[in-house]
């Protein structure tokens, strides 16, 4: 099965090295296209004017913030249940990325809310649950460095990722369950997107750019993590031989 074939770090590293140049190039191209299209060619909204352009970074960042944590939860489950050697490396590598996107979503949302809602922040179900998601990310990252012994740190972090994962559907459906100032979903809906193609396309390109970026930097971070583990093993080996 693909997952077990990838369990071997050297095979993973070889695959990552083959994919990375393409992923990096595609990321830069997608960002360039998304930025130029979103800022330059997409039409202003009849009500929101040019502030609608903030959607091209706010929405992809929010999607990636939720994708990141879901990715960490699945990886942590695989790590705990099947002891897959790369799973907790993947989860640990994804955390700072997800946290970064969560922060972007919160800040760009606030910058969009001030002109359009008349407020930088409101304790609304969507905004509050996204803030909780950010704290979960920070907690996850802090947990790794708080526990010295890697084995126990991995276990504790995996449990936090799994417990915190319940928050992702809460963020997603908060706009439907509670009456929120934040509007309900406009793209990922049962009856299809309600946005005009002229804005939906640049949004899709930007979402693709963010996703490609996530995978590219995730692979960098995973490689660094694996090399870090090899260094630790080597230094322990040398120390043992000298003792």
């Amino acid at each position: 099965m693909m997952l077990t074939r990838l369990a071997n770090p050297t095979r993973f590293m070889r695959l990552a090295d083959r994919l990375l140049p393409w992923l990096a190039a595609a990321t830069v191209l997608a960002f360039a296209a998304g930025l130029v299209w979103g800022l330059g060619f997409a039409p202003p909204d009849y009500q929101q004017g040019d502030t609608v352009r903030i959607m091209f970074v706010h929405v992809p960042a929010a999607w990636l913030a939720m994708f990141g944590y879901s990715f960490m939860a699945v990886a942590s489950f695989v790590a705990l249940v099947w002891k897959h050697p790369l799973a907790d490396v993947a989860a640990k590598a994804a955390a700072p990325l997800g946290a970064g996107f969560c922060l972007i979503a919160l800040i760009t949302g606030s910058l969009w809310g001030e002109p359009m809602w008349g407020t930088w922040w409101v304790w609304d179900a969507r905004l509050t649950s996204m803030l909780v998601l950010f704290f979960l990310y920070v907690g996850y990252i802090a947990l790794w460095s708080a526990i010295d012994e890697p084995e126990r740190a991995a276990r504790a972090a995996a449990i936090l990722a799994l417990v915190g994962a319940v928050n992702v559907p809460i963020v997603k459906f908060s706009v439907d369950w509670w009456s929120t100032l934040h509007q309900p979903a406009s793209v990922i809906r049962m009856d299809g997107p309600t946005i005009d193609a002229s804005i939906l396309w640049p949004l899709a390109i930007n979402a693709l750019a963010f996703q490609l970026y996530f995978v590219t930097v995730l692979l960098w971070r995973m490689k660094a993590e694996l090399i870090g583990r090899r260094i630790r093993a080597l230094t322990l080996g040398i120390a043992a031989r000298e003792a």
Partner: peptide
Amino acid sequence: MGGYAAYVWPAFGTTFLV
């Protein structure tokens, strides 16, 4: 940006900074 420069540019600036 249609008078909203103070919001649109910081939003894109923050994104690319991160």
